[in-house]
């Protein structure tokens, strides 16, 4: 029996602008089982980043509920969100967001240290797997983009989160490097048993995931038509639009 890591129920979000309201997400439902990976595909302005921000607690939904690892987070206070981010979530960004003044090793260990969860063997496995052994004493600006993203991935996994939220993690990399990083990322996520929700516009990168969802003008759909996905075992989406 599989447990659910992430559930969104009837989640909607509208931004109020001077020139009219923009509905970014409309009655979205999805669930991601624990230990599975999912890609959220969509064009620019489709609402995929807003969905990721809702799950990360950076934005509050107008309606609907969000559950992460069995906790209803929709009405979480800032303090509860801080605890959740520290203990359960990890974020990986297109711009890497490494601390520029810390060495590669310190960057990798930073979130694990904050959570009090430093595992030396995991550290070694991640460093070896991502090929960072020779770079540990360097500073981020001394690394290439691909190397920096590998450090960001190592940092996210080192923390042993239950859910990783990734925002276009290979968007800044060339195709070959992107493929390489993504392959490693997914392998390591599976190795650590975390769940992964990744936002991307690349179907190629999405193909590494267990399931793929498509967002179009705030409406989510399964993309099983595009690829064969067993949503019953992995994840599912539904929309309840009038």
């Amino acid at each position: 029996m599989t447990t659910t890591m992430l559930t969104l129920s009837h989640v909607s979000k509208t931004y109020h602008q001077p020139d009219g309201d923009i509905t970014v997400l409309a009655d979205v439902n999805l669930h991601l089982p624990a230990g599975k990976t999912a890609a959220l595909l969509g064009e620019s302005g489709s609402g995929k980043r807003t969905l990721l921000h809702l799950v990360a607690g950076l934005v509050k939904p107008d309606s609907g509920t969000i559950d992460i690892a069995g906790q209803r987070v929709t009405d979480f206070s800032e303090s509860q969100w801080n605890t959740l981010r520290c203990q359960t979530l990890s974020l990986v960004f297109q711009q890497y967001h490494l601390v520029p003044t810390l060495s590669v090793l310190d960057n990798i260990l930073l979130q694990a240290r904050l959570a009090g969860r430093v595992d030396a063997s995991l550290q070694q496995r991640l460093v070896d797997a991502l090929g960072l052994g020779a770079l540990l004493k360097r500073l981020p600006f001394q690394l290439s983009g691909g190397q920096q993203q590998r450090v960001a991935i190592a940092r996210a996994l080192m923390h042993q989160p239950r859910l990783i939220l990734a925002d276009e993690p290979t968007g800044n990399l060339d195709e070959a490097t992107g493929q390489d990083v993504m392959r490693l990322f997914v392998e390591l996520v599976q190795m650590t048993g975390s769940s992964l929700l990744m936002v991307t516009h690349s179907r190629e990168m999405a193909s590494y995931m267990d399931c793929r969802w498509q967002l179009h003008h705030g409406v989510i759909s399964n993309v099983a038509a595009l690829d064969t996905v067993d949503t019953g075992d992995t994840g599912s989406v539904t929309n309840h639009e009038g």
Binding site: R85, C86, L91, V99, Q111, A115
Partner: peptide
Amino acid sequence: TLREMGVS
């Protein structure tokens, strides 16, 4: 980045 990692 630290706030994203849950630092209040």
